[in-house]
Computed example of a mutant assay.
Amino acid sequence: MATEERNHVSNGEGDREEQEDEKMEQFFALLRSFREARDKRKHELRLRDHEEDINKKMKKSKASKLGNDERSSWVPRFEWEDFTSEFEFPRPLVVFPTPYNKKEDQKNQEDDDGLDLNLTLSSASL
């Protein structure tokens, strides 16, 4: 009887080990399939990028062959005189008059006889 129990116990452990081995094989099979899918997708993306690069190069070469007539021959070029010479307006600038207020005008005449160009702070201006 003791030998039967040992065989039964060993068979139970063996079943557990077989189940664990099967689970591990399934796990590694999943890992392999994920890696294969990832590598396949990377390969597809590389091919797509490579095809896009080729298409861009072809478009550029076609544009350069056909576009020589379409391109402008004028290239902007600035010289120092462009920035130092005075600019003359073709007509006088429009100057909008300030609104006229008699009360403010009288106060300004009483306070100021002219423009005060002295930029120092005085107690009167504070």
Rank of each mutant, 00 (worst) to 15 (best):
P76N: 01
F34I: 12
K103W: 04
L30S: 09
S64F: 03
F27A: 11
R41V: 10
K102Q: 08
F83V: 09
H50Q: 14
R32H: 00
F87Y: 06
N68K: 15
F83S: 04
E4Y: 04
P99W: 02
I54E: 15
K102N: 03
E81K: 11
A37F: 01
S72L: 10
L117K: 04
D105Y: 03
W80F: 11
R35D: 12
R77P: 00
M58F: 05
R35S: 13
A63M: 07
E52W: 01
P99D: 07
E36R: 13
N101H: 13
A63S: 06
S10D: 08
E22K: 11
L115W: 01
L47N: 02
D69L: 12
E25A: 15
G114R: 14
R16Q: 12
K102C: 05
L126N: 05
E36W: 01
K59I: 10
S122H: 02
V9N: 10
S72C: 09
K23Y: 04
W74E: 14
A2Q: 04
D113E: 09
W74S: 13
R38A: 11
E70I: 10
V95R: 11
E36D: 08
M24A: 15
A29W: 00
K65L: 13
P99V: 10
F34S: 09
R71Y: 01
D113C: 06
L93S: 06
K102W: 02
E52C: 06
F78N: 03
A2G: 04
D116Q: 05
L45I: 12
E20M: 13
E88A: 03
R32A: 04
A37L: 12
D21F: 06
K62F: 03
Q26H: 06
G12M: 14
K60V: 05
L66N: 05
P90N: 09
L93F: 05
L30E: 11
S85H: 04
A124I: 12
E18H: 05
K65I: 06
L45M: 13
R91D: 02
F89Y: 14
S33I: 05
R16L: 15
L119P: 09
G67H: 00
G67P: 00
E25N: 08
S73I: 07
K107F: 05
S72I: 02
G12Y: 01
F89G: 02
L66R: 08
E51I: 09
W74M: 13
D116L: 13
D21M: 13
E88W: 00
R41T: 06
V9S: 11
E4G: 02
D21A: 15
R91M: 06
R16I: 13
E51N: 12
A37I: 01
R32G: 00
L31E: 08
F28Q: 14
N55P: 01
D53P: 00
H8D: 10
T84R: 12
D15G: 07
R41C: 12
H8P: 00
L66Y: 05
Q19S: 05
T84A: 11
S123F: 09
L45K: 08
L126E: 05
P92C: 07
N101E: 13
D82C: 08
L115R: 03
R91G: 00
N108T: 04
T120K: 15
D69S: 13
D112M: 09
N108A: 11
N7W: 02
